Simulated scan of single mutants.
Amino acid sequence: MARRALGPATLRVAVAVRRALAEHAPGGQPLLVACSGGADSLALAAGVAEAVRQQPRPARVLVVDHGLQPGSAEAAADAVGRCRGLGLPGTVVRVRVEGPGGPEASARDARHRALLAEAGVDDAVVLLGHTLDDQAEQVLLGLARGSGPRSLAGMAVRRGPLLRPLLGLRRADTEACCRELGLQPWQDPTNADPALTRARVRHRVLPLLEAELGPGLAEALARTADLCRRDAEALDELAGRHRTEAEPLCADLLPLPPAVRHRVLRRWLLERGARQPGHDHVLAVDALLTSWRGQGPIDVPGVRVRRRDGRLTTS
């Protein structure tokens, strides 16, 4: 019996997945689909299932159970069942959410560790279901923090083993795809929790801005991320050409453009043992070059930086 034709939203998802695989993962590597059971990741799983039907390659689903809400184990099992119904085998892995940065950041870190560990088994590409809406939210959060172009660059389609095929689609597309396929997505209660900054951006800030500034704001923010990413990558490449010694000469660093010099200094701080040096730390160290008045050492998490005999040193 002939297969039913794909609905318009499902077709958009399938085309986005096929294009992303053709451009960013053409080598036939196994695919590992991260699925939460929400609309975005279920639609992604459907798109992957359609893609591998047309061009066979190993593909499977991993559902990460963070154990943060009652019934999370049942929701994870349901997500695996829905993916199997789409033709993709799947498993659940339970993680422990702990560490710095609050529950949202800790859950994200635990999830990524689990996905990368599972992908390492067969060198799989990890597919994530982030959409254009997620990208727009990321840019707004970066603007609110006063972040530089690297943060405003948002999420790349491909970075390392991670691949995000749906960054060009709206959340409405993934929700429509699930409706067309008769899939009932799981509604993560944290996505509507006003105590979480991202939830407030999603449900209050972005809709208000779109209502006041007109349609197309999310697309404009995503386009801003693309432009910032290109600029940041070019600056990173320029900074990468400047190799620093253990105790670099200030006279060698001072002529560099600030955007490049700051990147060189941040990389040098990390090489010397600094832990997540922020922009303020980099600017304070930069002042040892640009505003030298014999000032004392600069404390950066993990290291202390001082200027001595025309060089930067750490202790």
Rank of each mutant, 00 (worst) to 15 (best):
V201R: 13
A176Q: 12
A211M: 04
R145S: 10
G148S: 10
V139N: 02
E175Y: 00
G182R: 13
S151K: 13
A246S: 09
A222I: 02
D236S: 09
A211S: 14
L166H: 08
G154R: 07
L253S: 06
G146A: 08
P248R: 02
D193A: 03
C228S: 14
R229N: 01
A239P: 01
A156G: 08
D173W: 13
D188C: 04
V157M: 13
R241L: 14
A176D: 08
N191F: 11
L221Q: 01
A239Y: 02
C250D: 00
R159H: 11
L227K: 05
D252M: 03
P194N: 03
A239E: 00
D188A: 12
V139H: 02
A192C: 01
A144T: 00
P185F: 06
P189F: 06
P255G: 04
R171L: 14
V260W: 04
P194S: 04
R150N: 08
A246Q: 08
P258W: 07
L208E: 12
D226S: 09
H262M: 08
Q138F: 11
L169Q: 10
L163W: 05
E212G: 15
L208D: 13
C228Y: 09
L181E: 10
G216Q: 09
P165T: 11
A199P: 01
Q184K: 15
L249F: 01
V205L: 15
E175A: 15
T197V: 11
E175R: 15
R171P: 02
L167F: 07
E219I: 07
T244D: 13
R179Y: 05
Q187L: 14
G146S: 06
E237Q: 13
G182K: 14
G240M: 04
P189S: 01
H262G: 11
D193H: 00
L163M: 12
L227V: 10
L143P: 03
D226K: 13
R243N: 01
E180D: 06
L196W: 10
E219Q: 15
T174Y: 08
P165Y: 03
T244L: 14
V139D: 05
G154V: 03
R229K: 07
L169C: 12
L166K: 06
R200G: 08
P257L: 08
R150H: 10
R179I: 02
E245F: 07
T224H: 09
P258D: 15
T174M: 10
R159L: 13
G168C: 10
L167V: 06
C250V: 10
A176K: 08
C250A: 12
R158W: 02
L183P: 07
A144L: 15
A153S: 13
V201S: 04
L143A: 10
A195V: 12
D231F: 12
R164A: 15
L206Y: 09
L166P: 03
G214R: 04
L162G: 03
D188G: 04
L254G: 00
R223A: 15
R164M: 06
Q138R: 12
L152G: 05
Q138A: 14
R170A: 15
P215E: 12
V201K: 06
E247C: 14
H242N: 04
L169T: 04
A222K: 01
Q138H: 13
R229A: 06
A239L: 02
Q187D: 10
L238A: 03
V157H: 01
D231I: 00
Q138M: 14
Q184P: 07
G146P: 01
A218Q: 11
L256I: 06
R263C: 06
E180F: 05
L140R: 11
L254P: 00
R159I: 01
L141H: 11
